[in-house]
């Protein structure tokens, strides 16, 4: 029987962590792009678009991520599409991220004083020009810390994709446990790898919040 040293276990976990990072990046970038579209719909002037985007956000925030994963993995397969686990994982995490980011960013957009909207509309700017030149540059400053903070949720969310069979850090930990019968060590190490990924993000979110708040304190 092959013996696994602690280093073997850690090396394999780190190898699998690459997929956790990659999936997090895909979800964050894709979710950010889609989230921006949802944000425009949510804060825009069309009542229909606003209602649709509210429904979208409520549905995604109001149901477990695991159910969304199952629906896209098993559900789409039954509709006749051939869905590999990585696609279902990427798709549902992207949708999930977009709903949360859109809602976070909406808060930031609404924190911009109404006078800014009135001033820019009196300059005959269209909605997109207002967002592009007046509101978003100011909202960005408030939006950075919570966005970085949410990225931690995305990294942790990728752990669920192991349940539909996507091999990332959690799935690798389960597989290594099945081979080594050392769950305490393996899951402990996996937790440490997640901690090493997430803690810098949490910390930088806190530091950014303190730093970027300086300009706001004296208003």
């Amino acid at each position: 029987m092959i013996q696994f040293s602690t280093w073997d276990i850690l090396r394999n976990l780190l190898f699998a962590a690459e997929w956790t990072i990659l999936l997090s990046l895909v979800a964050f970038v894709g979710g950010g792009a889609l989230g921006l579209i949802v944000l425009f719909a949510r804060t825009g002037r069309s009542t229909l678009l606003r209602r649709v985007s509210i429904l979208y956000i409520e549905l995604i925030q109001g149901t477990p991520l695991l159910m969304q994963l199952f629906l896209s993995f098993f559900g789409l397969a039954l509709m006749g599409f051939d869905v590999p686990p990585w696609f279902a994982a990427g798709l549902s995490l992207t949708l999930w991220t977009s709903a949360f980011l859109a809602e976070i960013w909406r808060g930031c957009v609404e924190a911009i004083p109404r006078g800014q909207w009135e001033a820019s509309s009196s300059l005959a700017m269209t909605y997109f020009e207002q967002m592009r030149h007046v509101v978003l540059p100011q909202a960005l400053r408030i939006a950075v810390p919570p966005t970085v903070g949410f990225s931690v949720q995305v990294v942790k969310g990728t752990a669920l994709t192991s349940i539909i069979g996507f091999v990332e850090l959690s799935k690798a930990a389960t597989m290594i446990t099945n081979a080594t019968f050392q769950p305490f060590l393996v899951y402990g190490l996996a937790a440490l790898v997640y901690f090493a990924l997430c803690w810098p993000l949490s910390k930088s979110s806190q530091i950014l919040e303190r730093k970027l708040n300086v300009a706001h304190r004296n208003h």
Binding site: V152, S170, A173, Y187, G188, A191, S202
Partner: peptide, 20 residues
């Protein structure tokens, strides 16, 4: 900090499979 920066799934597996 440990709990907030690790996924619930890993915490659950650690408790259920690891603690025994």
């Amino acid at each position: 900090e440990m709990i907030r920066n690790t996924p619930f799934l890993i915490q659950l597996f650690f408790i259920f499979f690891g603690l025994p």
